[in-house]
Structure formats: structure tokens, C-alpha cells
Design a protein around this nucleic acid. Structure first.
Length: 418
DNA sequence: TTTAGGG
DNA sequence: CCCTAAA
């Protein structure tokens, strides 16, 4: 049988042929051949060793003796099988059997070569497309022919013309329309979804929540805002295939790297740095802000406080436009959240300064007292949540550092924060 | 579209 | 930082 092989037209054919001619190791056999695939689905009897992998010697014998000669006896001797198992055959074993079958005649050999070259040109060895092709070929009115009886050879010759056309045509055309017999792998699903979402990205309206990360440049009061567009789980859910959307609980708690000490030393990332970060973030579409959280620098906090002092609370977009135009990673919601945290921190400090022991809740990131004082004053001026009372009521007694630091005047100079 | 509020 | 409802 080995003598009937035609020399491979291409060097790369050896990759496939070596499986067919000389199995080199048990490992390869174990990877590409399962006994069940053979004996169940094609009626070939292949002896097995204990762990149900193909014994090499017996495989050689059986291949020489019995391949291409399916018999009902051997089938009956085979292990118990169910018909549904026929669709779980692995790609390589399927193609291997097919090549063994089709190598009976020169026409079939060339046909098989063609089929294999077609498969190879699709790239990777184990892509789902190959699986579809093999399944399709086997699933069409061809599979019965491998599986039956003495009429095998006659049927083979009779239907040879049709089969030849069917295989060549169906191997390329029908992989998309045939019913999917094997459950696609998770990775395939994700990659497919990614590519598809990439195709749809230009057509779909980006979600509003990430608009400040979009990379389009819009002019606005002489500022250029750099935005990065990201895909969201919502986007992926529209992709047609059943893409497993990462649940919120999974995204909820990414491992965040807690800074060891204080605010970041470098206050503002340069504009180019931001651009690089977020253009790369655009490239990798699953950019998760939670995994790349940006610590608030002291200057950012000061700027936020300045903005609130100027525009008041609840004008987050305005503050963002005017004071955070150069930091695209801060959305108005971020500003608001930060302000909420600042309020909390100032309240905590107030409570602590009332008590005997003044222990810093966030010792790693101590806020300057002057800053907390300003937050406190702003909280009184612009109570949050909104409801801007015309006359701020001061119900809480100011903490000690507020009392001794006298002036509640509004001319907070930046030098106060040093 | 922006903000508030809760998680 | 995210999500959602409401303005």
C-alpha cells in the first residue's frame, strides 16, 4: 500500500503524509488517532492496548490488512457505539481514512491530493474550518459509503464521478451552510466574535459610555480631546454568535496593583504618553480600565477641587472640558466619583479630628490637610448631591484644623497645597 | 446627553 | 470604576 503513494507534489505535504505512511511515535498517534474514531465510525477493527490508544504494531498490521476493506464482522466486533458518535470523529483521523480510501485509484489519489492541498491552504492544522470540511464531506451522502458492505467498491465506482465533484465542491462551498456538527471551541468562538466585531465596528454607533476614550479628535474650545474607542460587552453580545460575555462579577475585581506610597510621583502623563496608551488600548479591544486604573495624582485632585470651586458640583462635563482636557482618561463620571471619595475622606478626617485619636484611614495616600479643608469648604458651598441651597448651612462643627486655619476666604492659592 | 445614585 | 435610571 505504501508503494502506491504518489510522491507529494509539495514539500509541505510530508506533514500530512508522515501520518499516513509511518506513524513516528505513540504521541502522534495518540494525538491524531483514537481507536473509537476508527473502529466505530468506519467499521475497521483496530486492536487497542489498555488505555484505548492505538497500539502501533497492531495499527500497522491492521492498516495493511484491513484498511479499505470494511467488513460487517469487524464492525460487529467493535466496541459498542452509538450513531451520534459518528459526528465526533477527529479531523485527522477522518481525513486519514479518507485518504486511505481514495488512494485506491489514481483518480482518487489525485483527488485526495487536491483535497489536502485545499485543506492546507486554509492555514492552521486544526482550524474549525477543517473540521467543518471534513464533517461536511463525511456527513453528506458520502459517509454511508465508508460504512457499509460488499457493495462498497461498486458504489464507489458508480458514484465516483459524483463523489469527486461533490467533495471538491463541497469542501470549499458548503462549510458555511452545513449544519454545525461539532460544538465550536471557546477560543474559536471568541476569535470569531472578535473578527466579526472588528468588521462591524465601523458601522455601529459606539456606546456612549466610552465616548471619552474614543480616538476621534474633536475641536472644542481650542482643545483637542483624544478619545479611545473601546468595545464593550454589550457590543460583543450583538455579534451573532453565542459569545460568552464576560460576566460582571468576573470583571468586578481585577487584581489591582495597590501603590505602596502616596500619589504618583509624576503628576501628569504627557500627552503623547496618554495617546500611546490609549491608541494601544484601541488596538487591544478588550481594554479594561479596571485593570489599568490610573491613580489620581495630587495635581489632579487639586485641579478637580479648583474646577468645583469654579463651576460647582454637578458640572462635571464642564470641569472635564476646561480642566481635564489634557487627561483623556478622566471622564466626568470619574471626576464625580473622585469628588465623592474626597467628600468621604474629608468627613472621615473630620470625625477623626473630633475624636481623641487621629489616625489616617489611608496612610498610604495622605491627603494634605489644606486640601481636605478646601474639600470641606466646597462641600458646604456646593453640597453634594446637588440641591444647591442659596445659603449653605453649616451644621457640622468644623474640625480643629479648620478652626485654627482661620480664613474661609475663597482665594485659595495653589501655594496652599505645598 | 448628562447626572445621580448605588454597587 | 461600572451600571442604570432619570432628568
Amino acid at each position: 500500500m505504501e508503494g502506491s503513494f504518489l510522491p507529494a507534489p509539495l514539500n509541505e505535504s510530508n506533514e500530512v503524509d508522515h501520518f499516513l505512511v509511518e506513524p513516528k511515535s505513540d504521541h502522534e498517534l495518540g494525538n491524531c488517532l483514537r481507536v473509537q474514531d476508527f473502529s466505530r465510525d468506519f467499521g475497521y477493527e483496530i486492536q487497542t492496548n489498555g488505555d484505548a490508544e492505538v497500539d502501533e504494531n497492531s495499527f500497522r498490521q491492521n492498516r495493511g490488512l484491513q484498511l479499505g476493506k470494511p467488513s460487517s464482522e469487524s464492525k460487529s466486533q467493535g466496541s459498542s457505539r452509538s450513531d451520534t458518535d459518528a459526528f465526533e470523529i477527529s479531523e485527522l483521523s477522518a481525513t486519514m481514512v479518507m485518504e486511505a480510501e481514495f488512494n485506491n485509484t489514481p483518480v482518487e489519489r489525485s483527488l485526495t491530493r487536491e483535497l489536502f492541498s485545499g485543506l492546507r491552504t486554509r492555514g492552521g492544522c486544526a482550524t474549525p474550518f477543517e473540521g467543518n470540511i471534513c464533517d461536511t464531506i463525511l456527513d453528506n451522502n458520502n459517509i454511508h459509503k465508508f460504512n457499509t458492505n460488499e457493495n462498497y467498491l461498486e458504489n464507489e465506482k458508480i458514484s465516483d464521478e459524483n463523489v469527486k465533484g461533490d467533495i471538491v465542491a463541497s469542501k470549499l462551498a458548503s462549510c458555511s451552510r452545513e449544519r454545525r456538527l461539532r460544538k465550536p471551541t471557546r477560543r474559536y468562538i471568541e476569535e470569531f466574535a472578535d473578527s466579526k466585531s472588528e468588521n462591524n465596528k465601523g458601522r455601529r454607533k459606539p456606546p456612549t459610555k466610552d465616548k471619552y476614550l474614543k480616538v476621534t479628535s474633536t475641536e472644542e474650545s481650542n482643545h483637542i480631546r483624544h478619545k479611545v474607542q473601546m468595545l464593550t460587552p454589550k457590543d460583543e453580545s450583538h455579534c451573532g454568535t453565542s459569545v460568552p460575555v464576560q460576566s460582571r462579577s468576573q470583571r468586578r475585581h481585577p487584581e489591582k496593583h495597590v501603590p505602596v506610597s502616596g500619589f504618583l510621583s509624576e503628576d501628569e502623563p504627557s500627552a503623547t504618553e496618554c495617546k500611546n496608551v490609549y491608541s494601544s488600548a484601541k488596538i487591544c479591544k478588550k481594554y479594561d480600565r479596571r485593570k489599568h486604573q490610573k491613580m489620581w495624582t495630587l495635581t489632579e485632585v487639586m485641579r478637580l477641587v479648583d474646577g468645583i470651586a469654579e463651576y460647582g458640583t454637578g458640572r462635571w462635563t464642564r470641569i472635564k472640558r476646561h480642566l481635564f482636557a489634557s487627561s483623556p482618561h478622566r471622564t466626568p463620571i470619574d471626576l464625580r466619583d473622585k469628588w465623592r471619595n474626597l467628600l468621604k475622606a474629608s468627613c472621615v478626617n473630620i470625625q477623626n479630628s473630633k475624636g481623641t485619636e487621629c489616625k489616617q484611614p489611608h496612610a498610604s495616600r495622605p491627603l494634605p490637610k489644606s486640601l481636605l479643608q478646601r474639600v470641606y469648604e466646597l462641600a458646604n458651598i456646593y453640597p453634594y448631591p446637588k440641591e444647591r441651597s442659596p445659603k449653605p448651612v453649616r451644621e457640622a462643627t468644623p474640625p480643629m484644623y479648620l478652626i485654627e486655619s482661620n480664613s474661609l476666604s475663597f482665594n485659595w492659592g495653589r501655594k496652599k497645597y505645598e
